[in-house]
Design a protein around this nucleic acid. Structure first.
Lengths: 415, 415
DNA sequence: GCTCTTTTTTTCGAGCCTCGAAAAAATACT
DNA sequence: AGTATTTTTTCGAGGCTCGAAAAAAAGAGC
């Protein structure tokens, strides 16, 4: 059972809703907000007047759109870019990047570095992250006071409280509480998120028509990751970021996976698996640490050219992904899929076997109607998701705060 | 974004919360309710006074517990059994049952019938359901006016709006809108639910300590079903009841499943699969329609006795369940599992191979800590879940109604 | 048996919040 | 310039929750 609603919660929630409506719509008028929220004009007027006075929203006078209708013209409300700023940090294999984003969602500064994450020590990894954030915060153009949140995305498993990286393929280190470390270092609230989950968040902001309530984002890269939105909410595991689609079992006792187990989907569809099969190495061959994008492009080109082991490798990848998706669809029903990452560019090689495999599974009856979309560039997507996540936090926790933390919840009602 | 909260919603929600607190706690005092909901004593007092006046709650004077403390004794609030009644109908293979339950959750009447569901026509099936409900409603001891809800659980896939059975192993018929049919026939709101989901609901009411926020209920029967609670909420597919654990793919292209596809978990762990393997028939052998409980018990006894094909059949079942659970745990993280149904009595034969398989999967690191519980009798559980579901509906939709249906939601905030 | 203490429950006024209606504001049309 | 139209603000009414205080109902002590 959720906790009772008190009188002060009411204003808080409706404030949050107005902010959220503005963030989503861009420059909605008060009338439009009233329509989407279902609240009365008087209420919207009162709340937005507060928000403007507090410098959170602003009336966008500049964009005097040519009013085609007569009557008093609607005046658009927009987010005040200076109300706050957030940092989005993305840590992936051999790469660390950070972006400063203003409250309106515009990138105002960014920095990217190459690192050798696989060989770095725990402290080196932490120090690099702290240092790159510090450099951004020391930028004289930035008002440090306004930085309200740091969001860090990592390829790997994070805990469900968004505090720590539990395990990652990009480093042998485990259990690094990045969120706590950054928070202590800079006294700015920080969260730690899984990269694929952030991809899903970003897709939802980018194309809410296609990616609305239920969809799947799959990262086809050295490993296989997934971000899943169900019923309009990001799906996470009960203890971790969850959604380890790449480690569902495709063939019990099958090919050797980077995680040390056997038969995972990733052991057939990850870059290293495609590379291993293309070279006709044994399924027991130790996964290689990294395969360059150029090398993968060469494999794909060769697969398109001749019907040799390269094409067969992509076929096996498609089959593994297809049976994995089929099992997933048995649990959640089919949903639109976005294939993200460098290997999404080779989706033409993967798709036939993938569809054939799905057709043999419980999700198969709708095999034809499942639509796939590809997006080869994952980094911007992850960063964007990170930024939106951080901004949403500011919207809700800082600009629409509860008067006081409420007594603990007592569990929801399931029946 | 969810819709704005209006002033009248506030009372409605808090009313619902008080009712729910009473249903959960049994006979809580106003003070206890104030503590669990976080609302003030004044508010609880006002709301409970309303509810008593409306005949929904009652002060339980009878149970004067020996007050050990001094001071004014707490007076327990309880649900008024006569406030309403609900019907729980359970349709499973060759069996149809109905129970009338009063508002306090006590069974006041029941009836059970044997049917040959596999051979019945669509109309016969519908007529039997309508007839059994009609007989209960015509009972002179029952005030028909008070019946507020009918909940029907079926073994099979239901749609996500809880209106229709889409597909079921107990009948060749498909797409029967039982909820609509009953609703039209009796002018009583009806819902249609998946049996395994109702098992999960019931477990949560029965043992909220063990089955709280995240757990899995697996039905081991002729087929394999699953009910899943995640983050305190019943997990369903996006379009259907979902959670078709039995039809996750265990071995691509493997044993023939009752659903017509190959390699499903059920094709190794369902009763017919165990029976097929025990007789050393081919994996391609057509699944038999039904195996009696007595026959399954005999198989299990023989498996315990000698290390023959029977034991191997149970081992294969355990392996399939284990890899299936392992894949599931890759997505949702490990959680407590309840094994329900006649074959749960043979869980001793299944468990070793199951644990061994899980240990080879992503969920494996916690293999030892995953706890299994068994409950051989599924029918009472399903009925109980059905009843609680129907009662919760009455609690929320009838006794705490919204003043008017609100404007459509605009999607939740994911970031 | 009476009073005191303790705990629960109710009562009451204050403070917010949202709502609907009406007024004010801002523009196009004539 | 006046009128029509649409958006936004203002204002009073009605509800809801809250805290404080009062009332109620018992046990404890003498």
């Amino acid at each position: 059972m959720s906790v009772g609603i008190r009188h002060d919660d009411l204003r808080r929630r409706n404030r949050a809703m107005v902010i959220s409506a503005v963030r989503r719509a861009g420059q909605p008028s008060r009338t439009e907000i009233a329509a989407t929220t279902g609240l009365s004009h008087s209420t919207i007027s009162a709340i937005s007047s507060d928000l403007i006075q507090e410098g959170i929203l602003a009336e966008s006078k500049g964009s005097e759109t040519v009013s085609l209708k007569r009557g008093r013209p609607q005046v658009g409300l927009s987010l005040n870019p200076e109300a706050a700023a957030v940092l989005a940090v993305v840590l992936s294999l051999n790469s660390l990047s950070v972006a400063v984003i203003d409250y309106a969602g515009q990138v105002v500064a960014e920095e990217q570095r190459r690192l050798d994450t696989l060989t770095m020590s725990r402290d080196e990894l932490i120090d690099e992250c702290v240092a790159i954030v510090r450099r951004r915060l020391e930028d004289p153009d930035l008002d440090v006071q306004s930085v309200a949140r740091i969001a860090l995305a990592i390829q790997g498993i994070t805990d469900s409280h968004a505090r720590a990286m539990l395990w990652s393929p990009i480093t042998p280190q485990t259990n690094i509480a990045f969120a706590d470390i950054l928070e202590r270092e800079f006294a700015i609230p920080a969260i730690m998120e899984n990269d694929c989950n952030m991809m899903a968040v970003a897709l939802r902001w980018r194309d809410p028509d296609r990616y609305r309530d239920d969809f799947i984002a799959i990262l086809l890269s050295h490993g296989i990751g997934m971000g899943l939105v169900l019923k309009g909410e990001l799906f996470t595991g009960t203890h971790s970021s969850g959604g380890e689609f790449g480690h569902m079992i495709h063939r019990p006792g099958g090919a050797l996976c980077r995680c040390g187990r056997r038969g995972c989907v990733e052991a057939y569809a990850g870059n290293y698996a495609i590379w291993r099969n293309a070279r006709q190495l044994s399924e027991n061959a130790e996964p290689v640490a990294d395969v360059s994008d150029a090398e993968m492009r060469a494999l794909a080109a060769r697969a398109r050219e001749t019907d040799g082991p390269e094409r067969e490798a992509y076929r096996k990848a498609g089959e593994a992904l297809g049976f994995g998706l089929g099992s997933l669809f048995a649990l959640i029903d089919p949903a639109p899929v976005a294939m993200v990452g460098a290997s999404a560019a080779a989706f033409d090689l993967i798709e036939p076997a993938l569809r054939e495999a799905i057709a043999q599974t419980a999700g198969g009856q709708h095999s034809g109607s499942i639509s796939f979309d590809t997006e080869p560039n994952e980094l911007p997507l992850i960063r964007e998701g990170c930024a939106m996540r951080a901004l949403s936090f500011v919207d809700q926790e800082i600009f629409a705060p509860s008067i006081q933390a409420r007594a603990g919840s007592v569990g929801k009602n399931v029946a």
